[in-house]
Design a protein around this nucleic acid. Structure first.
Lengths: 243, 243
DNA sequence: CCAAGTATACTTGTATACAAGTATACCCTT
DNA sequence: AAGGGTATACTTGTATACAAGTATACTTGG
């Protein structure tokens, strides 16, 4: 899978991944970042040639991306859907839905171990900030939420998360990379929000949980939108003057 | 894909399906019905031989079933998970989650067309009962809920439904087939519940909606359990005397 | 008889080949 | 010149071939 274009998905996250997974991850990033524009028609043969692999892993990748709702498989070619503001809002609807569900379950469980685990992740996130490692920060951020969701051991809620995760991951990865460069001060607030979330879980304070959840979302959503749009503009070849 | 064993998934639902889809549908039915026991290890080669197809469609099928959480892909072979009572409860958790979400959205929309559409489906269901067509009844039942979910045009909620649907479909299909034979009187109550549901949507009466939803679930869940277990027992080779 | 190492018979993942179907473009006829 | 039909260059879906890795079983040495 050697290729001329540089890859934007972290190599280190693909240590044990199959070629199909690699193609899927990279395509996903290119679609979500806007490098591949919404509406584009992807051909299995063309992609196989681009990535220097056979059609088999490409087919696998397209199936995966279709199940994530960022492309649509049609008779002739796969049509790129991408992430518009509408889709981003929808994703957060679903996250809100499952995370509140998870919280209700957690209220009935012993959350001691979970809180400990989450605190560990927080430490990791802080170190990632210190060393300006946007990818690592994103990884831990995703892991944070996944840890919470896994803790209730609900296979079908976990299934929803698994379907959402790759898109979330790409989205967060891209926005964090931008923030680490342009809005470094945002990160402190993200940390604070997560700490509120942990506190809510520890004390089983529903009101606090809802608050931190919304704050988290508003933060990510509202503030990110600008970064987001600017990044998509950027990728569409609109050159920015200010060096 | 000619085979000695008879298929339990309705042929007519596969009119335009690929071989991979056919294999997936049939395997799903066999797993959920208990014909293939939980814990069984499936091999791509063996399945390909069983269904008289190549490995390609079998691979596709296994990937689909894995995404539905009824098998688990491992290093050597795919392990059948199946549907225990735990999974069934979890599925209904998720249905409750998304259907209540959908209802909240519907409260803000004009539901006139939707109600009309749902009434049409109800008529179909009644006719299916009249002609004792369990498969058609199941089809319309699934369609009923899918129509409601589709109506709010939320692609990511629809995605959740799409992931859940095949398993739901198989489950409902199996339990309806049993009911049409053994508990024919249940069907009238199902109709009543659905009519309540339509009424709730028409009047946007949340309390009524919750009530009919729960009634529907309690009905399907509580009462079906016996049928269910008996059916699974049956398939495990426990021969019943009473002809 | 037991242990260790090798050989074998599996497994999955990727590549390639082939068949069937579809849209496009070109050519021929009117 | 315009319309219809055919040819072609695509597309996807399935089958087969091959490579790399893993568990099991057997054999061989102690």
């Amino acid at each position: 899978m050697a290729d001329s274009k540089e890859f934007i998905y972290p190599e280190k996250w693909l240590s044990k991944a199959s070629t199909g997974d690699r193609v899927a991850s990279e395509l996903r990033m290119r679609i979500i970042s806007g490098k591949i524009e919404s509406g584009t028609i992807l051909s299995e043969n063309k992609l196989a040639a681009d990535f220097s692999v056979s059609r088999s892993p490409v087919r696998d990748a397209l199936k995966v991306l279709a199940s994530e709702n960022i492309i649509r498989l049609e008779r002739m070619g796969a049509v790129v859907i991408g992430l518009t503001e509408k889709e981003i809002n929808e994703i957060y609807d679903v996250r809100l839905l499952i995370e509140t569900f998870v919280f209700e379950r957690l209220a009935k469980l012993d959350t001691h171990e979970l809180v400990k685990e989450l605190n560990k992740i927080m430490e990791m996130m802080k170190i990632a900030i210190k060393y300006e490692d946007a990818d690592e920060f994103s990884y831990q951020d995703i892991l944070f939420h996944e840890t919470i969701i896994r803790s209730i051991q609900h296979s079908y809620v976990l299934m929803i998360w698994s379907n959402l995760k790759p898109v979330m991951e790409s989205f967060i990865l891209l926005s964090m990379r931008t923030r680490f460069k342009e809005k470094y001060e945002d990160l402190a607030r993200i940390i604070t929000n997560h700490e509120l979330y942990i506190q809510a879980i520890g004390t089983k304070d529903r009101a606090l949980m809802i608050k931190s959840l919304h704050q988290n979302f508003d933060d990510v959503q509202g503030k990110v939108d600008d970064l987001w749009m600017s990044q998509q503009m950027l990728s569409k070849g609109v050159e920015q003057e200010h060096e």
